[in-house]
Design a protein around this nucleic acid. Structure first.
Lengths: 161, 161
DNA sequence: CGAAGGTAGTTTCAATTGATACCATGCTAT
DNA sequence: ATAGCATGGTATCAATTGAAACTACCTTCG
């Protein structure tokens, strides 16, 4: 397969060249493509195993890691819309997985904590999540994974500003 | 920041450990997070610059690269839903950017080609797209980018089956 | 104080998405 | 040939999403 020339070089000049095969090597596209593939697989698994949708699972994870966090802090951290966070929080509360405690410092907000049931569920989820991760990323060396992680974070820094 | 242990090792055993900081280093999450960040930036730019949504821009790119492709082939190649492809094709036809020729080999399908206007637009889009790409990925060396690409493709192979 | 403006979270609504059903055409086997 | 099943593409509908308006509370400043 032919390779596109370097991104930052003057590759653009030769339109005939650029006209062929832009999309396949276009990194934003490639990244989105791969991410969707992985996300779909994960989403299906969570839905089937625990009846959780992605935002719900993320809330559980974040709350488990940061007990008593507020919804808006979750939004900041995960970049989920506050509406999405709100809906997931309501749904998880209804299912008895999390509790919303009043925030003594600000009565507009709630502090979210896992209830006993939620904590138990989380303990079930974690190994399963790692297993799913390993199914996709288990074939790579630790060095490759570290590098991949660090690249993702560098990209985030650049794109997120 | 504490680092999670290796994926494929028995890290799961220590729940106290796993209970902290699962999400931030969880690769499917990280991947989706980064991808969304980049996609949003790109989508905004295309919308603002050319009035194109992502599926439409993808169609244009694929058609430019594969003149006379059918909708279903586009769906296969890009993993876009056939409904999404259909809508984008209709919209682009209405805007006079592409033409749908009858397929002599199968009267159910159309062969999509860029019209003159579409071709001109594509010629404008390409350099802009490369520029956007460079804005996010320009800080990396070619070796890093190649490696990143190849990892994405390996991940696709594993997750896409 | 209390008016003015800001923020946490929810509700509402419109847009986007994808599953499903559907139509027209194509293919295969009798 | 034609009956029966498969496929390209479109239409319909229900679910998901996020923008904007709204409510309740908080903060600042005259």
């Amino acid at each position: 397969m032919q390779k596109r020339s370097e991104i930052s070089s003057g590759a653009v000049a030769d339109l005939t060249q650029a006209t062929r095969l832009l999309l396949d090597d276009f990194l934003p596209y490639r990244l989105s493509f791969t991410s969707n593939l992985v996300s779909e697989a994960i989403a299906r698994a969570y839905e089937a195993l625990f009846g959780l949708r992605i935002p719900e699972w993320r809330l559980i994870a974040v709350i488990a890691e940061h007990d008593g966090i507020t919804q808006q802090a979750i939004g900041l951290r995960t970049r989920m819309d506050k509406v999405t966070v709100s809906r997931a929080a309501v749904s998880l509360t209804e299912r008895g997985l999390i509790e919303r405690r009043p925030n003594p410092e600000d009565r507009r907000s709630h502090l979210l904590v896992l209830g006993p049931t939620g904590r138990r569920l989380y303990a079930e989820i974690v190994p399963k999540a790692l297993e799913l991760e390993a199914r996709v990323f288990g074939a790579f060396t630790q060095a490759e994974l570290d590098f991949f992680q660090s690249m993702l974070r560098r990209i985030e820094k650049i794109a997120g500003s």
